[in-house]
């Protein structure tokens, strides 16, 4: 099996690769933590919940820096063999991933805000919350947070599936450009 070789011009920059894989680890960990902590009654649930909230702050800072970094870098071109609709799907899915990476921490914070639960960031500082609860806004953002999480999991699965498809079936440089 011979895949096409990559050159520097069709690889993502080092900073973009680090952002990509670092945030992949963070986002997958937070999704896993989220799914666990809403069901578990174990003593570590509270600790995991607090780490999840603190990581949410890190995630929104990271994705902001990542977006700025992305806008400043030239991206490798998609393979010429791709049809126009495939290129459109690729681009739209990447922007959807960015939108979800922002929407997840924002909706998570807003559900805590309207439940009037200040968020303690590992004892260093606290994010403010409403003084008075608004249970309907809490519910709106709580349910939104869950729907967005499922959407993000689905999109990540498609994204990873597409990368493997490029590498093993089409045998192009798309996956390698991120390694």
């Amino acid at each position: 099996m011979t895949n096409a070789q990559t050159t520097d011009s069709d690889r993502f920059s080092l900073s973009m690769r680090l952002f990509h894989w670092g945030m992949a680890a963070l986002v997958l960990s937070m999704l896993a933590a989220g799914l666990l902590m809403v069901t578990s009654l174990q003593p570590w649930q509270l600790t995991l919940l607090n780490i999840h909230k603190a990581c949410g702050v890190i995630a929104i800072l990271l994705v902001t820096a990542r977006l700025i970094n992305r806008l400043r870098h030239k991206l490798p071109a998609l393979p010429k063999e791709l049809s126009a609709w495939q290129k459109t799907v690729a681009k739209v899915s990447h922007w959807l991933l960015y939108i979800l990476m922002f929407a997840m921490p924002v909706s998570g914070y807003l559900m805590q805000y309207f439940a009037a639960r200040p968020i303690d960031i590992i004892g260093i500082f606290r994010l403010p919350a409403a003084l008075q609860v608004n249970i309907q806004y809490y519910s709106l953002f709580r349910e939104l947070h869950a729907v967005l999480a499922i959407s993000l999991i689905t999109l990540i699965a498609l994204h990873a599936g597409a990368a493997l498809h490029h590498h093993f079936i089409r045998k192009d440089t798309v996956l390698k450009s991120m390694l």
Partner: peptide
């Protein structure tokens, strides 16, 4: 590449840290 792979194991660590084996919320 090893570093990238290692990073991908972090969610697996989270999952193995404790499954809700008993009663759930």
């Amino acid at each position: 590449k090893t570093l990238y792979l290692a990073l991908l194991f972090t969610p697996a660590l989270c999952l193995s840290a404790g499954k809700p084996a008993q009663v759930t919320a």
